[in-house]
């Protein structure tokens, strides 16, 4: 797993993948999708896919892959190495979503929520496998949002695939368990060795799991708050945990596009106002040239 490629610029997303096993180009394959790090307030969210020929499902099961949450870190590492070295019939790919991209996507003017982001990432990975030449037939994944709706959406995009969206897919289908192991191992490694793009003199790595209710995470967040910048990009600004802390302890920041704060209704003028004389008609208006450039006579310094 060449995580250095992501670490070189962790403000951006990165796709990493194993070579495609030759057999997966010629035989019908099944593919599992799972994610790691959806809930945490720190670090990236990692989407993983793992695939193998349908005929080799049993062999994959014999590797004793299981839902990554039921395994210890050491077991996950060992299983990942096993999957990675079984390159004759197992392939994988990972999409690492930078916390910076998660923050800026969720907070952009045209809001992009986490479910949409997750769906698009999963769709992107299926497409990646197809483009790489994997002869895909079956896709298994856990749901994000209502399962039926998600399944319909995927079937519409990939009508030639047999898509199964199932809650707890990571414990039901070995190929999804394998994907969850790849994703979790990548997320853990990246978080453990997070390379801060900021120049903060190596902040301590005592941030725990990154889940908002982890006391270590809470403690780290309270110790590393900057009144102006808030946090390094490692922290997801779009999480309510972060917003609450920033709202209480950091300097308030107002952006020009937040007029929704005033309650929406008041910003729309009454229709009657169009028929009344403008309030400041007596005041000389400055020329359009100045108005457009936001230029005003300097009367006070």
């Amino acid at each position: 797993m060449e995580l250095e490629e992501f670490e070189r610029d962790n403000s951006q997303n990165r796709l990493l993948s194993s070579p495609v096993p030759e057999i997966c180009r010629t035989e019908d394959c099944c593919l599992g999708i799972d994610e790691a790090g959806r809930g945490p307030v720190l670090g990236p969210m990692v989407y993983g896919i793992c695939y193998c020929p349908v005929a080799r499902k049993k062999d994959l099961q014999d590797l004793k892959v299981a839902d990554s949450k039921t395994l210890s870190e050491a077991e996950r590492e060992r299983l990942f190495e096993k999957l990675n070295s079984t390159s004759d019939y197992i392939g994988w790919a990972l999409h690492i979503l930078s916390p910076n991209i998660i923050s800026t996507s969720m907070q952009q003017r045209a809001k992009y929520n986490l479910n949409a982001l997750s769906h698009d990432t999963a769709i992107g990975l299926i497409q990646f496998a197809l483009d790489a030449g994997v002869q895909l037939k079956e896709v298994f994944l856990d749901t994000v949002g209502p399962a039926e709706k998600y399944q319909d959406k995927l079937k519409k995009i990939f009508p030639e695939l047999d898509v199964t969206v199932r809650p707890k897919a990571d414990s039901l289908f070995p190929v999804v368990s394998a994907a969850s192991i790849c994703a979790k191992v990548a997320r853990d490694r990246v978080v453990k060795e997070w390379k801060f793009v900021e120049d903060l003199g190596d902040p301590d790595a005592e941030y725990g799991s990154g889940y908002p209710n982890d006391p270590k995470t809470k403690d780290w967040l309270s110790r590393h708050l900057d009144p102006v910048f808030g946090y390094p990009q490692f922290v997801r600004f779009s999480w309510s945990t972060t917003q609450t802390i920033l709202g209480n302890k950091a300097a308030p920041v107002s952006w020009g596009d937040e007029d929704d704060d005033s309650g929406g209704k008041s910003s729309t003028p009454s229709v009657l106002s169009f028929f009344s004389a403008p309030k400041d008609a007596s005041q000389p208006q400055s020329h359009r040239f100045f108005q457009e450039r936001n230029l005003k006579p300097l009367l006070e310094f």
Partner: peptide, 22 residues
């Protein structure tokens, strides 16, 4: 910046901001 930061005083631009510019 395209926003107003309601605070007066120094800011750690060298630590948080400048190194993150790509």
């Amino acid at each position: 910046l395209p926003c107003q930061i309601q605070r007066e005083g120094a800011a750690n631009v060298k630590g948080y901001f400048a190194p993150a510019v790509k």
